[in-house]
Nucleic acid binder design. Sequence first.
DNA 1: GGGCATGTTAGCAC
DNA 2: TGTGCTAACATGCC
Length: 280
Amino acid sequence: MPELPEVETVARALREGAPNGAPPLLGRTIQSVKVLWPREVASPSPRAFARRIAGTCVQSVGRYGKYLLVGLHRLCDESGALSLLVHLKMSGRLDVVPRAEAFTPHARLVWLLDDGLALRFDDARKFGRVWLVGDPAQVVGKLGPDALNITPDEFAARLRARRGALKPLLLDQAFIAGVGNIYADEALHLARLHPRRTAASLSEDDVMRLYEAIRQVLLEGIAANGASFDWVYPGGNFQENFRVYGRAGQHCLACGAPIARIVVTQRSTHFCPVCQPLAG
DNA sequence: GGGCATGTTAGCAC
DNA sequence: TGTGCTAACATGCC
């Protein structure tokens, strides 16, 4: 499920500990890793992945777009920094848990930590991926700027270079990284722009409203600990504040008109036909 | 049992 | 080159 706010919530929990009392990952030593579903190890080979990560210490936990970045350091070895990258894709979850609780039915990788703890990657749909690389750019280098770390000028310049419809553009991680289907719909509604409006059709004012709207919905999402989706991603409550996503047929909170649902580039898309007219 | 789902990517057509 | 369509990945929920 995770888009930028959900991934940021996971990163924060791994850095500082989770609201449910789970301890932080930061500062812990990784003793070994159990790879229960090898296909989720994108690189290197599962065997090399396990060998290289054993004995490292977690030095940092960050995020770029929808990727989690875990900075690792080997205590008795000068061979340089190592980064663990994790993409949760549709159904991945990453939690520090007691070892006895680590091996759930959908656990795909379990890192054994010090102090009787484990880092569990649970992923029902098996779309998630992990990488162990020397330089994070090997994985995230092709992405655009992080959606919360881009200036208005840079956003405008990148948008001016594109011609297509706004909805698929916002979902294009090479344009900006971190926005997914939900927050794209939310941002377009807040900016009062139709999902099928083209980048080339926007006025200066439109572009700045869109920039601010993206920031606002992402920051609102983070403040709410992300959005929860039934069985997939628990914890957050931004879903209670959705303006349009999943509200087809319900009243627009701004004007009262019924929210519409259409499909744009195969993705379910929600908008208010009155607040977000295609023309103008 | 059919339809749906938050994410990404490869291959293809224009 | 940019854009966007389809299928694929694999599973679970309603």
